[in-house]
Design a protein around this nucleic acid. Structure first.
Lengths: 147, 147
DNA sequence: GCTACGTCGTTAACCGGTTAACGTCCAAGT
DNA sequence: ACTTGGACGTTAACCGGTTAACGACGTAGC
């Protein structure tokens, strides 16, 4: 079991669990905040637009949107000009969550960042970016066997 | 959207996707290799033992074990002395995967590690360990409100 | 020796994500 | 005007993980 990969997986899990616990305090679950965050920035996006911005597939957004709609945080409305499109609009309840959830997320980020020195944090950011790039490149390289 | 948390999430996703793609070449999926790795080290473990070693819940192991059993990589056998227990035993096919899968995983680890300098890699390992510890502590602190 | 509790593994229901298949609708070609 | 192809959202099926409930089995207490 290689060290970096293993440690990375365990750390991911711990961070995810902590994030989920923080979001649960506001009735949200992991991932739902990403969808809401895009609507807080730009209300009335389509599922496809949200998916592209968040970096997930469109079905993932439609499923999460259904959950959030049932929770009364957003509503679906057809686009007036293009009837293929659906637009997601925040309700008052959905908009009201922005402050608390952003605070919560910042608190968690500060707690994690605070455990590191400034140089450690900076180096972590740059190395994470590098790791992400390499992993993405590896993936696309195998998807296109002869590149 | 805080920087570290967001970047961490995206990196996790990229690493996971690359790992899954690597495992698919051997007919495995994410997580299945963890179960097998424990059996490669110690054949005949119980689901509960595997769960504790891997760091997941027991139901996660029983489900994965069913998939791997259907794939012919392991068999379930009742424990002779304690009939509550089930022991997971590798088949020849399951044992044959050890070399290829470990190579694959090492290849991926090397590719990621290779993109970093030695000091970067070392610092990444220590900071990841710190982040993991802080996230875990945060989680247990909320689970036990008054500690 | 019987009971009562604790420890197992399994199952079911949920969550977030994926890919594949499908129906609807727009737009461009003829 | 009709047809064809592409873009879009939804649904279904799968995967790995979780928590909660359940049934089978050991074991310690009485």
């Amino acid at each position: 079991m290689p060290e970096l990969l293993d440690l990375y997986g365990k750390t991911s899990k711990a961070v995810q669990a902590a994030t989920d616990a923080a979001l649960r305090r506001h009735g949200l679950r992991l991932g739902q905040d990403h969808l809401l965050a895009e609507l807080w920035a730009t209300d009335g996006l389509t599922p496809g637009e949200v998916a592209a911005l968040v970096g997930v597939t469109t079905p993932a957004v439609t499923k999460t949107a259904t959950v959030l709609a049932n929770a009364g945080l957003l509503v679906r409305r057809p686009d007036a000009r293009d009837r293929r499109l659906v637009r997601l609009w925040l309700t008052a309840a959905g908009r009201a969550l922005q402050g608390p959830v952003e605070d919560e997320r910042r608190r968690l980020d500060d707690a994690l960042s605070g455990a590191l020195t400034a140089t450690e944090r900076e180096l972590l950011m740059t190395t994470l970016a590098t790791v992400r790039r390499v992993a993405t490149d590896l993936l696309s390289a195998e998807a296109t066997p002869r590149g």
